[in-house]
Design a protein around this nucleic acid. Structure first.
Lengths: 143, 143
DNA sequence: AAACAAGTTTACGTTAACGTAAAGGTGCTA
DNA sequence: TAGCACCTTTACGTTAACGTAAACTTGTTT
């Protein structure tokens, strides 16, 4: 028997609510087994959840994530049509990721710039303070 | 006089609706000038819009984007407190971007893998076809 | 002058992704 | 057996980010 998880195990591990996990099941992203009424998650289910959350961080909707899962599942018994469809989706996703990479790079440059300007402004504030002290014998009003 | 834009100029350029642009103004992300009733956007406004859309692609909410804009504006006349607050926000954003970079890298690896598996599956389908043709003298039913 | 394009405000509608009770089952343990 | 802790379903509420429609002004083309 391989490892299993309760719903709150997963909720704790990934820092989300059980409500979310049940909601993801409702949206057909997860298909946990049951013992009686209680849900039991396999490590497969755990991987799905992990992928789901990663997808979300990248801005995918739950519907899109589900579509990817479905395509991937169908690919295992896939006809040529299914396989080509999957390859299309893959290349779409790749293009989106490339755009995101560019966005992130841009953002990082701008943040870097912003940080430099902040530090300069801080330095100038402190220079001014020293100047004030020398000439008045007291710290500047800003402190 | 530097260049200005109408609302539909920007809507067309960035492929969004005028409704969205007005909504962003409502959320205090943009402050276009007016000629009579009509909005007139400066190239500054255009930059703001561009940054807004980039932020959205990275998963920021409009409220978060606005907060960053405000902080950045205040930074120009900033007290030490404001500057330090800005530096904090910057480092938060940077951390988030790093996480996203990791997510993207992971995703790319998985997509790469998926693509390879798809292509293999396709190859196997085609091998099978050739085999069928050799032994039946006719193309396989799948074509 | 009439029509047409592009702009405006106001306001209600919609979708996604949960939050938040309410009401109840199951199994341990003090 | 009473009380927890944890699980369940059902269902209504909420927020963000617009969509969509109505009713109106303003400028310009025929």
């Amino acid at each position: 028997m391989s490892k299993t998880y309760s719903i709150s195990d997963l909720a704790n591990e990934f820092d989300i609510t059980t409500r979310s996990i049940r909601f993801y099941e409702d949206q057909e992203l997860l298909y946990p087994a049951r013992r009686g009424q209680t849900r039991i998650y396999s490590s497969q289910d755990r991987v799905r959840l992990k992928l789901t959350l990663r997808g979300k961080r990248l801005g995918l909707s739950l519907a899109e994530i589900r579509e990817l899962f479905e395509l991937w599942d169908e690919t295992r018994v896939g006809s040529e049509k299914q396989l080509l469809l999957m390859l299309n989706k893959i290349s779409e996703r790749r293009a989106a990721l490339e755009q995101q990479m560019k966005d992130i790079a841009m953002m990082q440059l701008e943040l870097e710039n912003a940080e430099i300007r902040c530090r300069q402004a801080l330095d100038e504030l402190h220079d001014k303070e020293e100047f004030d002290e020398k000439h008045t014998g007291a710290p500047s009003p800003s402190s």
